[in-house]
Design a protein around this nucleic acid. Structure first.
Lengths: 194, 194
DNA sequence: CCCTGATGTCCGGTCTATTGACATCAGGGC
DNA sequence: GCCCTGATGTCAATAGACCGGACATCAGGG
């Protein structure tokens, strides 16, 4: 089922991502050295290339893992509320708070080389968007089956984009933004109940 | 220094030993199946042979690891006493207590196939003896440098053999045996102080 | 203008696990 | 007594992954 070799492969990838994460947090995308990632993990530079293709692949993989972890926490905020609108508000606020003190987000937006890394959240943001979409859609449908599936998708998409925008370019405080989003999307959600 | 490959190799060996340990505790030496050890670890049967040579090698390796762990605890008992004779008594008692509820020792002495496994502690006990000797000698010399090195070796050897004998063939209670050993060896130790 | 350091690619060598086959042996059932 | 099963132990061929070195390329700095 799950062989030692498979576990080892996963572990290798995980340790490489740990090393890359640390390097990015410490020195941003520019400070990330492929050779250094390998060295810290006790593996050759070539192995890093075999695993991720190129440097951009490393950044993407780090971001994907971080996004997954991020979404677990956001989904937990969603799940704490019986009413979908309350859940929406809580999730938005949680996401903004988490993002504001996430070392990787900070590094991506402010460290040297941020012009590259920040694209993960802007012009090259499909990966993060899609991943978040999948996780959130699934979770919302499970929690509030009474809302039409299409409308869930629409709602998640809009909220997601607003949140992402605020992460990249902060406006009002998290709680304020969350209330705004809930207020604006609330009527739509209510009208779509079966 | 310590590459990913080396760590993986150690981990493999460790997981194989875990699987073998469980199998032996559950079914004794006869109940140990090479294929099962591999299967539980997610590795082929051949890999088990590559690592340990043969079934006896597996048992030896399990015993060696267990002995090391055992000695850490026994040495801790030694270290808790400033006087060598007190230390000796405490170590003997600790060893006998630990052995009496050690699952591996129980399996080796009572489970089916114990005729084979028990040889590790009797006719084929060199490995365990030597390992214990090294660890204990080093520890004792470090703790009580005032005792002549030769006499330490002698003393450890005798105490060790008495303890091993009591493990295989229990006599008086641990505390009693410990006191006996301390009483008998005490004068010798005292006389050898520099 | 060269020198340095980093990315990315290629390839041959090596190590290790895997797979399948085989010989051997002990125990149990017919 | 004889065969069948299951286990140990051995062997060779194969495959997969990492390694090491070499190389082209490019950007930045003295």
């Amino acid at each position: 089922m799950d062989s030692f070799a498979e576990r080892t492969k996963r572990r290798l990838r995980d340790e490489l991502l740990d090393a890359a994460y640390d390097a990015i947090v410490a020195g941003g995308y520019d400070g990330l050295r492929m050779a250094e990632v390998g060295r810290r993990t006790g593996v050759s530079r070539q192995t890093v290339y075999n695993e991720f293709g190129d440097k951009w692949g490393v950044l993407q993989a780090v971001a994907a893992r971080e996004t997954e972890r991020f979404l677990v926490l956001v989904n937990a905020a969603l799940a704490e509320h019986a009413d979908p609108i309350d859940g929406l508000r809580a999730a938005v606020e949680r996401a903004l708070l988490l993002a504001s003190d996430n070392p990787l987000v900070k590094a991506a937006l402010s460290a040297p080389g941020s012009d590259q890394a920040s694209q993960l959240l802007t012009t090259r943001g499909q990966q993060v968007l899609e991943l978040s979409h999948q996780r959130l859609d699934a979770h919302v449908r499970e929690n509030w089956p009474e809302v039409a599936a299409d409308d869930v998708t629409t709602c998640v998409d809009i909220a997601l984009r607003v949140v992402l925008s605020h992460i990249v370019n902060p406006g009002a405080a998290p709680a304020v933004v969350a209330s705004q989003v809930a207020k604006v999307l609330g009527p739509f959600l209510s009208s779509s109940r079966r």
